[in-house]
Design a protein around this nucleic acid. Structure first.
Lengths: 211, 211
DNA sequence: ACAAGGTTAGTAAGCACTCACTTATTTACT
DNA sequence: AGTAAATAAGTGAGTGCTTACTAACCTTGT
């Protein structure tokens, strides 16, 4: 399939090639890590010579860093709450937690490479993971934590530190995704649809914190 | 601190050196991954020349593999249920789940390197993670899943697929550990003792599945 | 004395990266 | 429209450095 490009179009527009290299690099980095992936492998997968990489990126680090930029354009890292704004407004607790889990699970499934890359990045202590964490995770804790606090005020939930609840809930579905991606790809331990998983996780959590 | 060995004891017994190299290799592999760690770095950290490594291990892969063997001897990967056998017998649900979470969290904290190594290994698709998964994780799902099923029969828990409950619960505390180790080392998002975390997680889960 | 523990000085292969060069596509001019 | 100059895309053959790993030799405790 990579040969397709090679055979039919020997030449590609600059931006197109740049994006292709980013995408391929993300996949390979996510599989073998930054240091475990060679520039030659990336070039081969793209069906070009190694030198092309260095025409587009001044070095391997820059290629790594530009994955996030490329990512931010092609699949914007969405605000996960914009999709459930109405549920939040209506204080539909089940709707909020169910959809949050389902969106997360679906997103992880579609974007397995990105999730793996973030893990590699976090383990290697690369900036990529730090940026993602500060822009995204912090926001989720603030926002969902605040929702839980308000519902406690309403008397709907019992008194627990909201952030512990957020941690517990995110833990359920993130860990479920990690299991499916890392350790149990064939889902021998537990085979369940994202919808069913989201339902069970949301139910356990809500029963667990209701007054 | 590594210089200590170098300065005071120029020579070490074979087994001692072997174990030292395993320990250092585990730490470095856990920080930078297998391919990201050089044999020279390991040798330097141990205060010996690189050649010593190859006196003890025929190659880098064998050093990697022998970490698990070494691990199994020094800190046996305990049966996590032997410590809570009495709680299980007495059907002390809170005791079972609280202690399970607490043991897990404490273990992760003590053995951060090992956890990181398992993640690296899983991401790189190395056998190390597969062996660990099949020996340990499968057992936990079987055992804890069976406990939940029995308590459902007793009428103590509502009817949910037991393995989903195991997934949700393990998710809470494993994800909490991963947060503390990978993304939020300074615990800016959530600072909580292992005891308090175990208590909250166990409570949320039990309230979430009780009849 | 001598074996176990350690070293020094390599080797071949692999790495990120460069350079001089060729080939394809636009652009500009008649 | 036809063509030549300018520019953009891609290549092959390197560079110097690092890597895992080896072989021949030294050193120390008993």
């Amino acid at each position: 399939m990579d040969k397709f490009f090679e055979a039919t179009t020997t030449r590609m527009a600059g931006d197109e090639r740049r994006q292709q290299l980013c995408k391929i690099a993300m996949r390979l980095f996510s599989e073998r890590g930054f240091r475990g992936t060679t520039t030659k492998e990336i070039a081969n997968a793209a069906g070009v010579s190694e030198a092309v990489i260095f025409k587009h990126f001044s070095n391997k680090d820059e290629l790594y860093a530009s994955i996030l930029d490329n990512k931010a354009c092609s699949h914007p890292i969405n605000d996960p709450f914009s999709e459930i704004a109405d549920k939040i407004e209506q204080k539909d607790d089940y709707g909020v937690f169910y959809n949050m889990a389902l969106n997360g699970l679906n997103h992880h499934k579609e974007d397995e490479d990105f999730l793996r890359l973030m893990l590699h990045s976090a383990l290697e202590g690369h900036e990529l993971a730090r940026v993602f964490f500060e822009n995204f995770i912090t926001y989720i804790y603030d926002y969902l934590g605040e929702y839980i606090r308000r519902r406690q005020e309403d008397g709907a939930f019992r008194e627990v530190e909201p952030r512990v609840v957020v941690r517990a809930f995110i833990g359920m579905f993130v860990h479920h995704s990690l299991n499916n991606i890392l350790w149990d790809k064939e889902q021998k331990l537990l085979k369940i649809s994202n919808e069913d998983a989201a339902h069970e996780f949301a139910t356990i959590l809500l029963e667990g914190i209701k007054k």
